[in-house]
Design a protein around this nucleic acid. Structure first.
Lengths: 198, 198
DNA sequence: ATAATATTTGGTACGCGTTCTATATTATTT
DNA sequence: AAATAATATAGAACGCGTACCAAATATTAT
């Protein structure tokens, strides 16, 4: 279609640049003062623009927070890799990874909240997870570990996803319903694992 | 110790009464207009007191929202019982209950949020879960179902808790990370079950 | 240059949870 | 009755996410 007069729409590169600029500042604030300090007004001040300008680039705040996911997930993966260095044997490696995964989220409640509990009812910005910096990797790593244990098993995908969401569920319960007399997380992770690789 | 002069502290009965009065109104608002309509100012207007008076009885809003838990959990249990009426056989009953449980939370995202995602970093009001109207029952029901399947099995408790948190995790992932290509919830629940009762 | 369009800005506004302060009310002991 | 201590109230205030809007600014086709 023919271009009409007037200022042209922002190019995708421009959009991308501004978005990552905001994301960068959000990351700085979070690292210095925690998630609680990341507010729209504060962020605008930091970036040097009007608060409402940010809304031209993000639909809502949660869309910005997703920029922080990569940082947290990398941190978690780092924990796991560190532990795995001294562990041999497919079973034991999977077990160690799983326990470290669960421990991480239980020991970092605010990080857990950021990723697994920061979402409003109105869905937005689908596919950020896939696009941004390969967050997928940090989850798919369990797929690899499982396939080392049961190489020729069908439905490895279902097994992986069940393990993942199961572990996340354990962390969630520990975080949000501490009143309930849950079995200890380690035992539950063990139970979960035994069923996945059986 | 000797009582000093001045107005005496509220009796426990008085405290309890006021709290449940507020809880009752919160329930009314939620049922009529949803969770979003339950705000402190609105609640105060409804109850007929000053907004700040509520803070004399509750530390924070989440403590009030816990009064709504019983209602939601009862609703969920009702769903399960309805389904179970026409199902015979221990295995099939457990399977049906689990699938219905997961479905319920996926189909009622706002209810899921209320119970499993409404919690601030500052913990408060521990043991509400146990005290209020036996919320426990709605979870313990899975314990009974499992024991029908594996009556003489040790560690039934760990199995039950793992199943519960696993199912909750499946619902959580569906709710908060829809971008991730999860296997479908039914398959994952099936996988989870098969590992628990194996 | 001019007109047309896109974007940014600033300001105002709403309702929110929450904190604070000052004042009034209530129920008890002296 | 007077003093006292617990509670309730009103009101202002803070920072929050977010919506709305009018004015300014930038960039293009004519």
């Amino acid at each position: 279609m023919a271009r009409s007069a007037g200022r042209p729409t922002r190019t995708k590169a421009e959009i991308q640049e501004f978005r990552s600029k905001i994301g960068k500042h959000a990351l700085e604030i979070y690292r210095a003062e925690g998630f609680g300090a990341v507010s729209m007004r504060r962020l605008a001040k930091e970036v040097g623009c009007a608060p409402m300008t940010i809304y031209a680039h993000f639909e809502r705040k949660t869309d910005i927070l997703r920029f922080l996911w990569a940082d947290v997930l990398r941190d978690m993966s780092h924990d796991i890799e560190k532990k795995l260095k001294s562990v041999v044997g497919a079973h034991e490696r999977l077990r160690t990874a799983a326990q470290t995964f669960v421990d991480y989220w239980i020991n970092h409640p605010d990080h857990f909240r950021l990723i697994f509990m920061s979402n409003d009812v109105t869905r937005a910005d689908v596919s950020t997870f896939i696009k941004d910096e390969g967050n997928l990797v940090h989850f798919l790593m369990f797929s690899a570990l499982i396939q080392e244990v049961i190489p020729d098993e069908l439905e490895a995908e279902v097994r992986t996803d069940t393990l993942l969401s199961g572990m996340i569920g354990i962390a969630l319960c520990a975080n949000t319903i501490p009143d309930y007399p849950w079995s200890d997380a380690t035992s539950m992770t063990e139970q979960l694992l035994s069923s996945i690789i059986a």
